[in-house]
């Protein structure tokens, strides 16, 4: 059986917000180490991988590996019934077809209980090759959100170029072009710092629609990492204390 107690429903809500537009159904793979989810969008252009560590829960027990097939729209609805600071327990029996969610109010005696239907989802975990990336950019997640939102007003795609100068995001639209250069900052310790590690110059083009979607994870984590090599998928990684959310996005080629 699974019993996982989270300090706050808000974490799960933010996580759902960050994936529900990419993926409709997904298996939450539970094992003694925690909960994992890996799913591709319908067009097989983007992949999202989520990991929640067992140690990040107030209490965590999973006797044997079990997949919980979840419709994310339904889970979003059930989670809307929780206050952000409710203590939230997820429970499922072995071979169960329901997920039980209990919300305990922090400062009152309210206890709410919901049962949500689970589904059988055929999904095979993809093999993601270990990649040595040629460039790693670490920046405030709010800045990344802002850049991709701004440029998505102009065009469909963005070219991301990493050089000694900094990281440049450029988009060409029918009516207007735009480019944003973010230079490396001196103080690495600053939470507003932009850090660039680079083995070689990279330049890749991506669909902004997906990046805008990924950037919703900013609510989970103040920093984001962009990992890039020429001609391989971009990795956008948000590491929050309790786990991570990583997105992979296939590049566009040619003009």
């Amino acid at each position: 059986m699974l019993e996982a107690k989270l300090a706050e429903a808000g974490t799960l809500k933010k996580l759902l917000d960050a994936i529900k537009e990419l993926v409709t159904d997904a298996n939450f793979e539970c094992n003694e180490e925690g909960i994992n989810l890996q799913a591709m969008d319908n067009s097989h252009v983007a992949l999202v991988a989520v990991h929640l560590e067992a140690a990040g829960f107030k209490r965590y027990r999973c006797d044997r590996p079990m997949p919980l097939g979840v419709n994310l729209t339904s889970l979003t609805k059930v989670l809307k019934c929780a206050k952000d600071d409710d203590i939230t327990t997820l429970k499922a029996a072995d071979e169960a077809d329901v997920l039980n969610l209990v919300y305990e109010a922090k400062n009152s005696d309210r206890i709410a209980e919901y049962d949500m239907k689970l589904m059988d989802i055929d999904s095979d975990t993809l093999g993601i090759p270990d990649t040595e990336y040629d460039a790693r950019v670490t920046m405030p997640s709010a800045e990344f959100t802002r850049v991709v939102r701004d440029l998505s007003q102009l065009g469909e795609s963005v070219r991301i170029e990493v050089s000694k100068e900094g990281v440049r995001f450029a988009s060409e639209g029918e009516a207007a072009n735009g480019s944003v250069l973010m230079k490396q900052t001196d103080d690495d310790e600053d939470t507003q710092a932009i850090t660039i590690e680079m083995n070689q110059h990279v330049s890749l083009t991506f669909s902004l629609k997906y990046l805008v979607n990924f950037s919703k994870s900013a609510s989970l984590c103040p920093r984001v990492q962009l990992m890039m090599s020429n001609d391989v998928p971009l990795l956008v990684a948000y590491d929050f204390g309790q786990g991570y959310i990583r997105y992979y996005l296939a590049p566009k080629i040619g003009d």
Partner: peptide, 14 residues
């Protein structure tokens, strides 16, 4: 602007 590739080319699809 450009042709969108899929992840199949890069990842081991089952």
């Amino acid at each position: 602007m450009g042709r969108q590739q899929t992840l199949a080319k890069f990842f081991d699809m089952p």
